[in-house]
Every structure is written in structure tokens, then in C-alpha cells.
Nucleic acid binder design. Structure first.
Length: 319
DNA sequence: AAGGATTCCAACCGCGGGAGG
DNA sequence: CCCTCCCGCGGTTGGAATCCT
């Protein structure tokens, strides 16, 4: 039997937080620091479960949270990262200082998923190659809407059929595959409005490691094509270490600003943890040719549409 | 103006994984 | 190695706000 939900205790409050509760929580955390969520409510004198306190703090009360509209830059980054990482909101949020995973998730579900669906439909109708997964969230939303509206028995049947079809065609999005020492994505630091403490970056990097996560062939496709299109493959043999990208993307000084990630060679990927950067790392300076070779090979496989070969190709990239 | 439909987002739920005994 | 505890994550829900007819 599983553990009972922590909020099931009689007498614990649920639902929206009051200002008073917020104040109590903030004061307690300012004094004692984060963590020990289980015991926090009791110590702080809150009639909430620890989980609820943690959520409230993480998603709303933390001082470094950036509130307000998602900027076009952030939006673009979310879309790119989602293409690469899938629904791994905490990872995506980790690249958007001041934004929470919940916020990004909500924003994606309410804004971006529709746009992506529309775009992919347009592409599909134009006969373009591209991801055409039907958003599960849209389905959920659609079903939710259906639930809310009156339905005739026939509509009920149709819904059941749709659900059955959905089950059949449900796109399985595999758990991300960790690829050691092939690529890594450093934390994005191009949004300047909130300062992120080095400790936080370090802690984050410690948690997430510097390994890239490749979800699917589409991700690889995206990464490869982006790399090629933006000329991220460095020609400069001196790219043996982290390249300073301060001012990139945010438009703030620094030689024109690249505004994009870059794939470059690096003999020691671990050096990247010392300084946040939004480049994609590769292990050593011989990889330029290797990458181009991989890219060519990948393109050949794309043309041939041989999925088996494609899978083994992707496998061959994994260590 | 009213009320139904839709959107948005804070909050909840359940699960998986890491740490420690 | 197993068990328990705790934390963090992603999916989902509920209701307030807004839009539409």
C-alpha cells in the first residue's frame, strides 16, 4: 500500500493561501532557510502540509521569482528547449532564471502547445517534414471541454471512440536519454533581469550534471539542423575552453552578441560549471569533423527514412 | 445584460528516486 | 540489499477571470 497523501491529515488547510499564511511562511524561511518541508509547517505554526508549503514558496513566494509576462525571447527559448527536452519543465525552468517550472508548464499548456500544434498542422498541410505529434495536453483540454459541455449519447460514443483511437495512436515520448560527455547544455544566462547566485547555478549544475539529454530523433534533428543553420560548429581551433558569451542574446554589449547557442569543442567539459553560458558543449577539439560527419550521416538517414538505421545511429551516439 | 464557453494559473496528487539507517 | 523518509517532478484539477454570443 502506498503512503497516504500528506495533505490527508484532518485539520490541515487546503486551497488558496492567505496573506497571513504567506507572511508566516516567508518569515520562517527567512529565519531558518529552505528545506525540511515536512517539519516546517509544524515549526512555523502553519496548518498546511509540507508539500503545500514547498510549492507555495517555490512557485510564488521566493524572492527571485520574476513575475509578469513571458517575453518573446523567453518564449522562443521555451519552445527551443521544449523541442530538445520535452516536458521536462524543471530543466527548462532551470534555463530561465526567475521562472518556475509550474509557470512554464502553464504557459506552454495555455499558449505554446496550441501554437506548436497549429504550426505543425500548417507544415503538415504544406507537406513539410516535421514533428506532428498531437499534443496530449490539447487532447486533455479538449476532453475536459467536452466533459464540461452537454453531450448527446452519440457524442459520448464519439468521445469513447476518440479516446480509443487516442490510446492506439498515443505517441510514446520516451524518457530522456542521458548521453555522457557527448553534448552538454549550459544554463542560459541571457536574461538579465534577475541575478542568479553562483551557488544556485552550481547546485543546479550539480543536480543536472553537464550531460545533454536527447529525447528523440526529432530532438537530434532539431539540434543538428540548428547547429548547421547557425554555423554553430566552430572553425576556430582555439575553442578549447569555455567561450565568454556575456552579452549574447540579451543585446547588452559584447561584439554583436551571438544570440544563439553554439556547439564547440572542449577538452574538459567540467570546466563549464564555473561559468553559466548558453552554449552547447562537445568534448574535444577534434569533434568538429566528427560532428560534421555525424551531421552528414544523419542527413543521409533522414533522406532514406530508414527508421531502424536511424535508431541504431542514435544508439551509436550514446555511450 | 446575462449566461455559457473558454482561458489561465495556483494548487493538488501521485509517483519515482536519492539518501540514510 | 531492503526499507522508510523526504524531496522534487510532471500531470491534472478547480475555480476565478475573461471572452463570446
Amino acid at each position: 500500500m502506498g503512503r497516504a497523501p500528506c495533505c490527508s491529515k484532518v485539520g490541515l488547510r487546503r486551497g488558496p493561501w492567505t496573506n497571513k499564511e504567506d507572511t508566516v511562511l516567508v518569515k520562517y524561511i527567512q529565519t531558518h532557510g529552505e528545506g525540511h518541508w515536512r517539519s516546517l509547517p509544524k515549526k512555523a505554526g502553519l496548518l498546511r502540509c509540507g508539500k503545500s508549503c514547498r510549492l507555495r514558496w517555490m512557485n510564488y513566494l521566493r524572492p527571485d521569482i520574476k513575475r509578469g509576462n513571458i517575453t518573446p525571447d523567453e518564449e522562443d527559448l521555451i519552445m527551443r528547449l521544449h523541442a530538445l527536452l520535452g516536458n521536462r519543465w524543471s530543466l527548462i525552468a532551470g534555463r530561465l532564471p526567475g521562472r518556475t517550472d509550474n509557470e512554464i508548464k502553464n504557459y506552454w499548456n495555455s499558449h505554446l502547445s496550441k501554437r506548436v500544434a497549429t504550426d505543425s498542422n500548417e507544415n503538415h498541410s504544406k507537406g513539410l517534414r516535421g514533428p506532428k505529434k498531437r499534443s496530449n495536453n490539447n487532447l486533455i483540454a479538449a476532453n475536459k471541454k467536452k466533459r464540461r459541455s452537454e453531450k448527446s449519447p452519440q457524442e459520448d460514443r464519439e468521445e469513447e471512440e476518440e479516446v480509443a483511437t487516442t490510446k492506439k495512436i498515443k505517441v510514446h515520448q520516451p524518457k530522456a536519454i542521458r548521453v555522457s560527455h557527448i553534448f552538454s547544455i549550459a544554463r542560459n544566462n541571457s536574461f538579465e533581469t534577475v541575478e542568479v547566485a553562483d551557488e544556485e547555478v552550481m547546485a543546479h549544475d550539480k543536480r543536472e550534471s553537464n550531460d545533454v539529454i536527447i529525447n528523440s530523433n526529432n530532438d537530434l534533428s532539431w539540434m543538428m539542423s540548428e547547429a548547421k543553420e547557425h554555423n554553430w560548429f566552430c572553425d576556430d581551433e582555439d575553442y578549447n575552453d569555455m567561450v565568454d558569451v556575456e552579452g549574447c542574446g540579451g543585446g547588452g554589449g559584447g561584439g554583436g552578441g551571438c544570440g544563439d547557442e553554439m556547439i564547440c569543442s572542449n577538452d574538459d567539459k567540467n570546466t563549464s560549471s564555473s561559468s553559466p553560458c548558453h552554449r552547447i558543449w562537445l568534448p574535444n577539439n577534434n569533434n568538429k569533423k566528427m560532428l560534421e560527419k555525424i551531421f552528414e550521416e544523419y542527413h543521409e538517414l533522414l533522406k532514406s527514412e530508414d527508421h531502424l538505421q536511424m535508431e541504431s545511429f542514435v544508439d551509436s551516439l550514446l555511450i
